[in-house]
């Protein structure tokens, strides 16, 4: 366990090198967010006051929470690094050391998220402060607790899925197209662009059985008090199941990939 603790510490130091990069990332991503919120405000000003089950404040809160959960859970450099580790033959050393590559990457993902979250506190914090009147509080404390748990599971799910995509580098020369294709689905079916429950009901129902909403949308819907009672339990069960499925899949893909691995360059 101790060695992984070291990995986290080293990971934090390494990602701090990218601090300007991260700061720019966090800052720049607020521009389209602001545009989206203003766009919705214009739409609400012309409509009856509700879109789906959302009031204007509810809609603004939705986008603010998406931004927070995204900062806490999104994979950004990890998949590219894993893919290039494989292509450049850097994983050879992990096959010799008493360290598990997946756990190692998970630690690095974790430290990357810590650094990113700390750095985005200032820009995102200011942004949320600007919209503080609109941000609704969670209905009660247990709900907030489940929101945090679900956010952690969302992070695990994002990591597992990206890990598997990156492992395709064992077989493919170029994984970036695959990563971008999956990212497109995550972006729309995960709830990045709009809340999934303003879609026609059958479509929203269908999406609930795909892994994508559990990467981002589900924790936010817990916070907003939309997923409660039986919905909450079923959602958490599905989210946990997806994490487990992708964990097993990741292990299986890794084991197959390793057999194929030729240590180019080494």
């Amino acid at each position: 366990m101790n060695k992984y603790w070291h990995v986290i510490k080293i990971g934090i130091q390494n990602t701090l090198v990218y601090r300007t990069n991260f700061l720019f990332r966090a800052g720049f991503s607020l521009v389209p967010l602001m545009a989206t919120i203003l766009l919705w405000r214009t739409i609400y000003a012309q409509s009856s006051g509700m879109v789906g089950s959302y009031t204007l404040d509810g809609m603004i809160s939705y986008y603010l929470l998406i931004t927070i959960v995204d900062a806490l859970t999104a994979v950004n450099e990890d998949d590219w690094q894993i893919a290039s580790d494989i292509k450049d033959g850097n994983i050879s050393q992990f096959l010799l050391k008493p360290i598990d590559y997946m756990s190692y990457r998970l630690c690095l993902f974790f430290s990357g998220r810590i650094v990113f979250t700390v750095l985005s506190v200032l820009p995102v914090g200011l942004f949320i402060f600007y919209w503080r009147e609109q941000l609704t509080a969670p209905p009660d404390l247990p709900t907030f607790g489940w929101f945090l748990i679900s956010t952690a599971l969302a992070g695990m799910l994002q990591f597992m899925m990206s890990f598997i995509m990156a492992l395709l580098a064992f077989w493919l020369l170029e994984v970036s197209t695959v990563i971008f294709i999956v990212f497109a689905f995550e972006y729309i079916a995960g709830g990045h662009l709009f809340p999934l429950n303003i879609l026609p009901a059958p479509l929203a129902q269908f999406l609930n059985y795909t892994p994508f909403p559990y990467q981002l949308f589900f924790p936010v819907s817990i916070y907003l008090g939309q997923a409660r009672g039986a919905d909450l339990w079923r959602g958490l069960a599905l989210q946990t199941a997806w994490v487990a499925i992708f964990y097993v899949l990741a292990r299986a893909v890794w084991n197959r990939g390793i057999r194929k691995y030729a240590a180019v360059g080494g």
Partner: peptide
Amino acid sequence: VIYLHTEHIG
């Protein structure tokens, strides 16, 4: 999706 819920933006 937006125009499922509104007729106009501006």
